[in-house]
Structures are given as structure tokens and as C-alpha cells.
């Protein structure tokens, strides 16, 4: 296996005549934390949609572990090992936290779930995965609460947990800290760092403290294109980045 988990060549997405994404080349190293930053409208979320298969690439190629997945459907990509969390929390609000995670774990073997005679509890692996993720999210105390009744910070963590439960190799997090308070942000930071030890994490983030703190690599995007890519230190020093987008924000390392 190569050292590169996820790779794109000249990836582009067009909505009508509008180029939301153009000529993006990415190389995401295995078991690293790679963040995507850029102003609103830079194409970050579109990039995620293209990587997960929610929108089809209009040009270019996407490779997962060297395998071309450009034309693979979104649910097939989940089975191949790509999972994502959403910028806007998207859970099953009237189901318990544990059931949310059990479903996400079951999503790896969805054909099994088509059998109307098979009991949900018979998939012990999914139950074990759900419990393991609950432990890693540190949400054991509220595991039987309805997802809709959890606090915002807990819901955001569960949102990341939904991606973890499919046991992905590559995990895409779309603004995991959006709308969070300071305490919750710290917990999320720990969680992402922890994930990076055994997952390839690609995440979109606006909080520069987190980005500079826990990323191995940073890609800066603007107007649908890649502007600069490098280690946090390199990106911080890059004059073009400073001019184009970040200004002084980038010096603040506090989370």
C-alpha cells in the first residue's frame, strides 16, 4: 500500500456554468490530520461533496488507496472506507444516541439490513462498534438519551462519532466545531487528535487555533482552487496566504 490514503488529480466540479471547484490536486497522507481552510465560497464543502460522492466530479480523478473511485456511488464509497460528518448536525433526533451509532455501524453492511427477519441485535459487531465509539466520544453517560435531547456540543461529537462508526480509513469532518463553546472545542480538539492516530482525517475548519495546533498539513483554498499547501508553519509564513485570506488571524495559536 502506498503512503497516500486519498489523492485527487485535477478535480473539478461545475454547477451549470459555475466552476465551484477547479484543478484541485490533493495528496492526503495516511494517518495524518489534514485541514482545509479558506474563506466562504472557496469550495471547501464542494470538495467534500465530490470526495464523498454526493456530487459527481465534472473533471479529474479521485483515488482511494490507489484505486480510482471517481465514478463510485456515495454508499459504495462508505464501504470502501470514506465517512463524513456534516457542517450542519444531521442525526436521527428521535432515536437514542446508541441507536444512531448502531445504524452508522450497520451502514457498512447495508445489504444485511435488507433482510426483514434478521434482528438488529444479531449484528454484535455493530453493537460492539457503537459501544466502542461511545467510549471514545466520552458520551457513555447519555448513551440512551434521544439524540435530539443532547446538548449542542454532545450532538457535534456524536456527529463525528457517526462517521467513526463506519470504521472508515479516511474520515472527513466538515467544520466539527461550528457553533461550539470553548469547553466543547477543547474536547473536540482532543477527539480529532485522537482520531488522527489511527485514521486519515481531512477536516474543514474556521478556528485557526485548532487548525494550527493539530494539523500535520494545511491546504488553503480560494475561489475553487488550491492556493497554498504545507505544514502549519509554512502556511503561516506564506505571504500570499497572509495577503489573500488570513491576515493576522493566523498568529493566534489559542484554541
Amino acid at each position: 500500500m502506498t503512503d497516500i490514503a486519498l489523492q485527487t488529480h485535477g478535480l473539478g466540479v461545475k454547477y451549470g456554468t459555475f466552476h465551484a471547484l477547479a484543478d484541485v490536486d490533493l495528496r492526503i497522507r495516511r494517518n495524518s490530520v489534514h485541514s482545509i481552510i479558506g474563506p466562504n465560497g472557496a469550495g471547501k464543502t464542494t470538495l467534500f461533496h465530490a470526495l464523498t460522492g454526493r456530487v459527481r466530479a465534472s473533471s479529474g480523478r479521485i483515488e482511494l488507496d490507489g484505486r480510482d473511485i471517481t465514478n463510485t456511488s456515495d454508499d459504495d464509497r462508505v464501504r470502501l472506507g470514506i465517512a463524513r460528518s456534516f457542517q450542519v448536525t444531521s442525526l436521527f433526533p428521535n432515536l437514542s444516541l446508541r441507536e444512531n451509532l448502531r445504524l452508522a455501524a450497520q451502514g457498512r453492511t447495508p445489504w444485511q439490513a435488507l433482510a426483514p427477519w434478521r434482528r438488529a441485535e444479531s449484528n454484535r459487531e455493530a453493537l460492539a462498534t457503537a459501544d466502542e465509539v461511545i467510549g471514545r466520544l466520552a458520551l457513555g453517560a447519555v448513551a440512551n438519551r434521544l439524540a435530539g435531547e443532547l446538548s449542542h456540543g454532545q450532538q457535534r461529537r456524536l456527529e463525528v462519532g457517526m462517521a467513526m462508526a463506519s470504521r472508515p480509513r479516511v474520515i472527513l469532518l466538515d467544520e466539527p466545531t461550528s457553533g461550539m463553546g470553548i469547553d466543547d472545542i477543547e474536547a473536540m480538539k482532543q477527539l480529532i487528535r485522537d482520531l488522527g492516530r489511527d485514521h486519515t482525517v481531512l477536516f474543514i475548519e474556521h478556528n485557526m487555533g485548532i487548525v494550527m495546533n493539530i494539523s500535520d498539513m494545511v491546504t488553503v483554498m480560494r475561489l475553487g482552487r488550491k492556493l497554498v499547501e504545507g505544514t502549519p508553519a509554512e502556511v503561516r509564513e506564506d505571504p500570499e496566504v497572509q495577503r489573500a485570506y488570513l491576515g493576522n488571524m493566523i498568529t493566534g495559536d489559542i484554541a
Binding site: T52, P110, P116
Partner: peptide
């Protein structure tokens, strides 16, 4: 039996949030 099965519980998930159900692989 159908409603208690993993199939039935997936149906409930689809009713609750179809986009999410698709995103986790169903």
C-alpha cells in the same frame, strides 16, 4: 418481526433523516 428487524429499524432511520441514512451507507 419486520418492524423489529434491522430492516425495520433502518426504515425508521430513513423516515427520521434520509440524507443521513444514505450518508452512512444505506
Amino acid at each position: 418481526m419486520v418492524t423489529q428487524s434491522t430492516f425495520g429499524r433502518t426504515l425508521i432511520a430513513i423516515r427520521e433523516n434520509e440524507g443521513r441514512a444514505a450518508a452512512i451507507g444505506f
